[in-house]
């Protein structure tokens, strides 16, 4: 092994670890959105680390330029594609997983989060909305 291979080895091993985490998250997590969370970040980071490790392994010649092109492309497109897919799933009204401890609580939707908070600091006469959390 050349000295640059000793630089490449930690990158490749860390990338393999993150790819493993991504596959485990894709299999084990309970609903689509958490699976998209696992794949969108962990798999991107793992791919980038493996490809950067290959750049150090090969040295800085033309093929490394191609590898850096793949690095830039994967870093831009992989989260973008998964974001597009997740937005389509959210608009299609896919069910969101809730922890069994919290079943029965209302899950706030996007409109309620964007709305200003219910007037708790005003005169306090608006108790008819106090039950809504």
């Amino acid at each position: 092994m050349t000295p640059t291979d000793w630089i490449a080895l930690p990158f490749v091993v860390a990338g393999a670890f993150f790819l493993f985490v991504s596959a485990v998250g894709l299999i084990r997590l309970p609903d689509f959105f958490s699976r998209a969370h696992a794949v969108g970040k962990s798999e991107t980071l793992g791919s980038l680390l493996v490809l950067i490790g290959l750049v150090f392994h090969h040295g800085f010649v033309l093929e490394s330029g191609k590898l850096i092109l793949i690095v830039i492309f994967v870093a831009i497109t992989n989260p973008t594609g998964i974001h597009t897919l997740t937005r389509a799933a959210l608009r299609a009204g896919l069910d969101i997983w809730v922890h069994p401890r919290d079943r029965g609580m209302r899950v706030r939707t996007g409109d309620e989060i964007d709305a200003p908070p219910a007037a708790t600091t005003s005169e306090g006469s608006r108790t008819e909305q106090g039950g809504v959390r």
């Binding site: 790819l19 991504s22 596959a23 894709l26 299999i27 689509f32 699976r35 998209a36 794949v39 798999e43 791919s47 493996v50 490809l51 290959l54 590898l67 793949i70 994967v74 992989n78 594609g81 998964i82 897919l85 997740t86 389509a88 799933a89 299609a92 896919l94």
Partner: peptide
């Protein structure tokens, strides 16, 4: 996940993940 994914979106997500793995496999 492609085979038993409960929804279509799960299958698509897994297909995209397999595509990224295939890019790495080609480079390797």
């Amino acid at each position: 996940r492609v085979l038993v994914g409960p929804t279509l979106y799960d299958r698509l997500l897994a297909v995209g993940a397999i595509g990224t793995y295939a890019v790495l496999l080609l480079a390797l």
